[in-house]
Design a binder for these strands. Structure first.
Length: 204
DNA sequence: AGCCAGATTTTCT
DNA sequence: GAAAATCTGGCTA
């Protein structure tokens, strides 16, 4: 027996800011909902990074390919990529159709379906279930099958919802794990939240 | 808490 | 053939 699903209002595309840097900040505190075969999983978005137009660290920098095509979809679509031989990561496309830019979702604070996430991440503490982009995708069972999905279609397999709780103070800093344009301040997180990835010194 | 190496495969050069 | 928007476990303090 599952508890009743939370009442989460789906976000519509017109609400999303049409710039990666603004969208990344705006998404902190919003909700990501995964409608899985076994049940619903959801969490508060507590950490993001923006990959802006003309950004040498972005996957779209060298143009559109089969791999990154979803980054060029109208804002609010999923771009799922496979990295380091083991992990998937989820982005939200952030520009107009034909513009390659997006927001990497780096961490969630689990809300619903914690037992399902735990099944995908055996042995992890609740605050570590979706703490980091690879862990987030693993916890929610997000694979390339979801690449290109419309995240503004509430009721689909994966969608964005409004905030269900007030957002805490916003923190910012340089992005993690990149080798180019490392000095740009395009990482956003909820200050003090235990589900934010990286060293604690960077998330307070 | 911080540093380091290994894993493992897709993608593009 | 090299690099990659990462994670884990083992080590040192």
């Amino acid at each position: 027996m599952d508890k009743a699903a939370m009442d989460i209002r789906p976000l519509s595309r017109s609400e999303l800011p049409a710039s990666a840097a603004v969208l990344a900040r705006w998404l902190i505190g919003k909700t990501l909902v995964r409608e899985h075969r076994r049940g619903r999983m959801s969490g508060r978005i507590v950490e993001t990074e923006a990959y802006v137009v003309g950004d040498a660290s972005g996957h779209a920098y060298k143009g559109k390919t089969a791999r990154n095509a979803s980054l060029f979809l109208e804002r609010g679509h999923a771009y799922v990529y496979f990295i380091y031989g083991c992990w998937f990561s989820l982005n939200v496309s952030a520009g107009r159709a034909g513009i390659g830019t997006g927001v990497l979702l780096r961490a969630l604070e689990p809300l619903e379906g914690v037992h399902l996430m735990s099944r995908h991440r055996l042995g992890a503490r609740v605050e570590d279930l979706a703490r980091g982009p690879g862990r987030l995708a693993t916890a929610l069972d997000i694979t390339r099958a979801l690449d290109g999905r419309d995240l503004c279609a509430g009721g689909g397999a994966l969608w964005l919802g409004d905030a269900v709780a007030p957002r805490g103070r916003l923190g910012t800093g340089p992005r993690i794990g990149i080798t180019r344009e490392t000095q740009r301040v395009l990482r956003f997180f909820e200050k003090g939240n235990r589900c934010v990835s990286g060293p604690r010194a960077l998330s307070g």
